[in-house]
């Protein structure tokens, strides 16, 4: 099914260590720009370095309390999206798989919207991230119920579409019934996805679940490798598919749920990053996991540094920018498929 998309002309495969080092360096450079770069259009606002001379307290607050959480959250969200995308694509053996596919993003968004809607987020500052994570877990619980004992990838995809659609419908319903048009506006803005104005507390709240999710996903490499051969052959090589399914669904759910709840929905990273890096990893699903994690972090950090420093006027939403980059990516895939079909 998918192999036709991937029979692209072979690119040279760099040494794996060099690839990881390069991606890590890209992420670090982007993080450095994120920490020290100032907004180019902000003439009314003193730059960071200027501020450091006149009002060092404000400058350090900006560095430690504003930019550092933003960069750390960007790295966290990027690693989560890249890792989840790589794991899902390897598991479903489908290059179009991404975290949104199994309903994790939509369910997390719903959970966060419910926190907004019932005003819980007003009196409990961290109801929002908690609501998002809870939403992702409930969504995945529903997914597992729908999937039942049938581990086939088609069932999972269909169940994921069902969970996504239902969560999206409930989100729309909540917006429709919102107590105030301004609350609805806030939710819509938040769902566009952004890392702006987050604090270290967001990081502390999201990090534990994220780390559990990462640990679950990191251990799937060998099973994903075996799945290259198909499900029966993978099982004959000692892979426990039921266990793999749990690991991936829980890992993606926990980490993506936590990420969505602090950043809103940031699409396409989980789709584009594994796809671009796969040839550079020799199409090895297990090598793709760390590469996509670093690549995801690099992409999110670069995109976020760009929206922060280059936005004219109001800051562009990160999720909007990744979608702008990501949507033409489908055109690229389509072109490859059609060229092959011709």
């Amino acid at each position: 099914m998918s192999a036709t998309i991937l029979d692209a002309p072979r690119r040279a495969e760099p040494p794996f260590g060099l690839l990881l080092a390069g991606l890590g360096a890209a992420a670090l450079v982007a993080a450095g720009i994120g920490l020290l770069g100032d907004r180019l259009s902000a003439d009314a606002v003193a730059g960071f370095a200027a501020l450091l001379g006149t009002h060092p307290d404000a400058a350090w607050d900006i560095l430690i309390e504003v930019r550092l959480p933003r960069v750390l959250l960007g790295a966290m969200v990027g690693v989560t999206l890249g890792l989840s995308g790589a794991a899902l694509q390897g598991w479903l053996r489908n290059p179009l798989a991404e975290p949104g596919l199994i309903g994790a993003s939509a369910a997390a968004a719903l959970g966060a919207v419910i926190a907004f809607y019932f005003g819980i987020a007003d009196w409990l500052r961290f109801a929002l991230p908690a609501g998002g994570t809870l939403g992702a877990l409930v969504g995945l619980g529903a997914l597992l119920l729908l999937v039942g004992r049938d581990p086939s990838t088609l069932t999972v995809i269909l169940a994921g579409v069902a969970v996504s659609a239902f969560a999206a419908a409930l989100t729309q319903l909540a917006l429709n019934l919102a107590p105030s048009p301004y609350a609805a506006l806030e939710v819509i803005t938040w769902m566009m996805g952004s890392l702006a104005n987050r604090s270290l507390e967001h990081l502390w709240l999201a990090l534990p679940l994220t780390l559990v999710g990462w640990a679950l996903l990191a251990g799937t490499g060998r099973a994903l490798e075996a799945l290259t051969l198909g499900e029966d052959a993978a099982r004959s090589l000692g892979v426990r598919l039921d266990r793999l399914r749990w690991r991936i669904i829980l890992g993606v759910g926990l980490s993506v749920g936590a990420a969505v709840s602090v950043s809103g929905v940031i699409g396409f990273v989980g789709l584009v990053v594994p796809h671009l890096l796969r040839p550079l990893c020799g199409y090895s699903p297990s090598r793709l996991l760390p590469a996509s994690a670093l690549g995801g972090a690099a992409l999110v950090l670069v995109a976020d540094a760009a929206v922060r420093t280059l936005s004219p006027g109001p800051e562009l939403k990160l999720g909007v920018v990744t979608a702008l980059i990501g949507a033409p990516f489908f055109l690229m895939l389509l072109r490859d498929v059609r060229r092959r079909g011709a």
Binding site: A3, A8, R10, T228, D232, A233, S236, L237, R278, G282
Partner: peptide, 17 residues
């Protein structure tokens, strides 16, 4: 798996490895 190897009828090759 170390004792029992299997060659399925329809071999899968998900990626161009």
């Amino acid at each position: 798996a170390r004792r029992l190897a299997y060659l399925p009828q329809q071999g899968g090759q998900a990626w161009p490895v």
